[in-house]
């Protein structure tokens, strides 16, 4: 499933650069020792942007929840309908979620709770994006 291309912006550039190098990085507030996703200009706990850094993740997670998309607003994805749209939680911090199309898993056969591993896929403009696969 090829997603729309991504043009990194100032806030998210480290995330996308890391993805191009095959690493999953998350924003972390070193003062609070707390990860956050999606990325924000300030820590959502201490409200300061001073101590935000990017931290490499293990790339391991669990399937928290999912839905099956039959009527997608994004034109490029409409030809793939229906498709799984899964929410992953990171093993590094189960409070942190990421979206996934869960490539390799048949539609509506998503094993909630199963272990997943990050992979990196090309988007339409070549920017890589983190995706997830069920660990066999």
């Amino acid at each position: 499933m090829v997603k729309q291309g991504v043009v990194p912006d100032e806030l998210t550039k480290p995330f996308w650069d890391a993805a191009n190098q095959g690493r999953l990085e998350m924003q972390n507030c070193s003062a609070c020792n707390r990860l956050q996703n999606p990325p924000l200009p300030a820590c959502s706990q201490c409200k300061s942007g001073e101590h935000l850094e990017w931290k490499e993740m293990s790339g391991r997670g669990k399937i928290y929840n999912y839905g099956v998309v039959y009527d997608c607003p994004v034109k490029l994805l409409q030809q793939e309908q229906p498709f799984n749209l899964v929410v992953i939680t990171l093993d590094d911090d189960p409070g942190i979620q990421m979206y996934s199309h869960l490539p390799g898993t048949p539609v509506d056969e998503v094993p909630v709770g199963a272990a997943v591993q990050v992979i990196f896929e090309d988007t339409a403009n070549g920017q890589k994006v983190p995706e997830w696969r069920v660990v066999a």
Partner: peptide, 15 residues
């Protein structure tokens, strides 16, 4: 293409 922040936002995203 979409901007990097939009792509990771909770609402209408890349996914």
């Amino acid at each position: 293409t979409v901007p990097g922040t939009f792509a990771l936002s909770p609402g209408r995203t890349l996914w």
